[in-house]
Amino acid sequence: MLTVTALSGGYGQANVVREADFAVGTGEIVALLGRNGMGKTTLLRTVFGLADRQGGEVAFAGRPVPPGRPDVLARLGASLMPEDRGVFPTLTVEENLALATRRSFAPAVDVHALFPLLTERRRQPAGTLSGGQKQQLGIARALLAGRRLVVVDELTQGLQPSVVTDVVAALQRVAASGVAVLVVDQQPDRTLDWCHRVLLMESGRLVLDTPIAAETRRRCHELLMLR
């Protein structure tokens, strides 16, 4: 579904991501892991045209995606929840969800059932929500907009453990429906429990791209210095 080839990117003259190659297939759940400051967020932003593409190519559903054009991926059915959640603070929860809703598409999960607060606080301005509540709204928006690909940066940030469990189950159902899923998270042990494949980033480069297995976990622990 998403194919990235020799992608380099950053901000102006600053190069952050160097020659990244990876793909996310239909129905696949991929984890992008790495320590803070390794370039994960910049990689996502470069893919989506929100950071400067300094080289390489991005293709989605067999179509080339030009640099600096986030609208192209959005029209083709890809969604990104950025690190700052990407909600519109002056709009209500209901209005934020309406903007993300796509005609003729309903995700495999009911976002209101997944996050009851979206109904309880539907008339509340998004900017007045707590961090965890904004996280739920941001994930819901990504699920509503991502008919082919859902990308979430910092998946579990601000979420209670019980909500994380529900979100993981929801993303698994979404993937089972044929949507590609790519997530960044700061809880690698938990993420490795439910994703199909892992990408590991070190100093702006992808240094590991492999299905998740026992050896994968050991290698991730070494590179992330978890143990």
Rank of each mutant, 00 (worst) to 15 (best):
L97T: 06
A31Y: 10
H196N: 14
S79R: 03
A74L: 13
L33Y: 03
H196K: 03
T101R: 15
R227H: 14
M81Y: 00
A14C: 03
R217E: 04
L149T: 00
R18V: 11
R35Y: 11
S79A: 13
N15S: 09
A74C: 10
V93W: 03
T41M: 07
R173F: 10
P89T: 05
E95R: 06
R197N: 05
S8A: 12
R217D: 04
T216N: 02
V174A: 02
L137F: 01
G39M: 13
A108H: 09
L76V: 10
A169E: 13
D189Y: 07
G178C: 14
G138R: 01
E120C: 04
Y11G: 12
R121P: 01
L50I: 11
P67V: 08
G132L: 05
D153G: 01
A20K: 02
R53K: 07
V72G: 03
D209T: 11
A213Q: 15
R217N: 07
E28P: 08
A61Q: 11
G68Y: 14
L226Q: 08
G204H: 06
P64D: 07
T101W: 13
A180P: 09
D209K: 08
V109R: 04
P116C: 09
Q54V: 05
A176M: 09
I29C: 15
A74I: 12
L2F: 08
N15W: 03
C195A: 15
L171P: 00
A106V: 14
R69E: 15
R190S: 04
V163G: 00
M81C: 03
G132R: 00
P82Q: 04
Q13Y: 06
A214D: 13
A31T: 10
S104N: 14
H196A: 08
Q157A: 09
A175C: 09
L99S: 12
V207F: 02
L223T: 00
E154Q: 01
V167M: 11
D71G: 13
A108N: 12
G158T: 03
E215N: 12
T90G: 15
F105G: 12
L73R: 02
L7C: 08
A126W: 00
V151L: 04
Q186K: 11
H112D: 12
F48R: 04
V163P: 00
V65T: 08
V179C: 08
T3S: 15
Q160K: 06
G178K: 13
V111T: 04
A78F: 13
D52T: 14
Y11W: 14
R18G: 04
A214K: 10
R102C: 04
V109L: 11
A176C: 10
G131C: 01
D185S: 15
V151C: 12
V17W: 07
D189R: 09
L32T: 05
T119V: 10
L117Y: 05
D52L: 14
M81N: 02
V163H: 00
T119R: 12
V163E: 02
E83W: 14
Q124F: 05
D110P: 11
